[in-house]
């Protein structure tokens, strides 16, 4: 046991003993059975703070902006939500964000899975190291810098267009459009997806794949009927993370979209900062939160929480 201290007990045991003694001094004896739940307190506190923030946003969203004072009116109203439904631009940018989230999730998972699979199954230490470095390197480069990197590569006088014009073809419009935003997002999300898929793939024993093949399954059959179903928790988890991060993204559409491929996060920013309408910005934020949460809930309902390893323990 690597963490066994000189006294014989592992460090983690001694830590828990310490916490137990601390709790015994401040916690009614009858509740000692619930000591373990105390470790959840920091997480609960974080969520609680988030909920308080959302509560304020709900409150702000129910007041209309008074253009004479640039303060929210006292009276409660649904004007901001009405604005969301009446002005096509908001439905349009929400739809654009949802579509992008779906496309990016699909492409990212398709690209990330073989990467994770190869990283786990390769017998070459050099290949594994290379894949790991390539995976973690983008984490050291922020999203904004990566977006600007794409501008350099895809711009009118960028690397790709230099090649295109070099062979006598006219320059291509590769940036400031929706596909450019999708490309930037896929590149940004890929490491997240690989990181979430890797443990799921690693949990599949290689001997199971060998057993499947020895029973006559082709490689594709094994992949389809054994690997993919067993990696489902990772696929669902990665899908949810990539989907929600894309849905709420701001920087890629801002930088690579040329101002005409905004997502809902950009519309929220504009409401808060450009037109100083905190009520409308809050209403849009609440709509985004509700839509995002509903879709994640739907995904979990379809896939079942058991896919994430939350299945009830069977006796």
């Amino acid at each position: 046991m690597a963490e066994t201290a000189a006294g014989g007990k592992p460090l983690s045991w001694r830590l828990i003993d310490g916490v137990d003694r601390l709790v015994a001094a401040a916690w009614p004896r009858g509740l000692h059975g619930m000591n373990g739940y105390l470790f959840l307190l920091p997480a609960v506190a974080l969520v609680f703070i988030l909920v308080i923030g959302l509560g304020y946003m709900v409150e702000f969203s129910l007041h209309e902006l008074d253009l004479a004072t640039y303060r929210l009116k006292e009276a409660y109203s649904l004007t901001n939500y009405q604005t969301f439904f009446e002005r096509p631009v908001y439905i349009r940018v929400l739809w654009r964000s949802l579509l992008a989230a779906a496309i990016v999730t699909l492409i990212t998972l398709v690209l990330a899975f073989p990467y994770a699979y190869l990283m786990v199954r390769t017998t070459s230490a050099a290949t594994r190291k290379f894949l790991l470095v390539a995976l973690f390197l983008p984490f050291f480069i922020g999203q904004v810098v990566r977006a600007y990197g794409w501008l350099i590569i895809l711009g009118k006088e960028g690397l790709l267009n230099s090649i295109v014009t070099g062979i006598g073809l006219p320059p291509l419009d590769l940036i400031y459009n929706y596909p450019a935003v999708i490309l930037g997002l896929v590149q940004y999300m890929l490491p997240f997806a690989v990181l979430l898929l890797t443990p799921a793939v690693a949990a599949i024993g290689e001997d199971i794949e060998l057993a499947s093949e020895s029973l006559g399954a082709t490689w594709i059959g094994t992949f389809r009927h054994v690997v993919i179903p067993m990696a489902k928790p990772g696929i669902i988890g990665a899908g949810i993370v990539v989907f929600t991060l894309t849905l709420t993204d701001f920087a890629m559409p801002e930088i690579l979209g040329g101002g005409t491929s905004d997502f809902i996060a950009n519309a929220i920013y504009d409401s808060y900062f450009q037109i100083s309408n905190i009520g409308l910005g809050s209403a849009l934020s609440i709509v985004l939160t509700l839509v995002g949460s509903a879709l994640v809930a739907l995904m979990l309902m379809i896939a079942g929480t058991g896919t994430l390893g939350f299945a009830e323990r069977k006796s």
């Binding site: 253009l67 002005r87 096509p88 631009v89 349009r92 940018v93 101002g259 005409t260 905004d262 519309a267 504009d270 450009q274 037109i275 100083s276 309408n277």
Partner: peptide, 18 residues
Amino acid sequence: LVENQPIWFSKFSEIMQG
């Protein structure tokens, strides 16, 4: 400008995001 600019900004955004 103070009274109308937010309205113009919104309309501009609505058209350009179409």
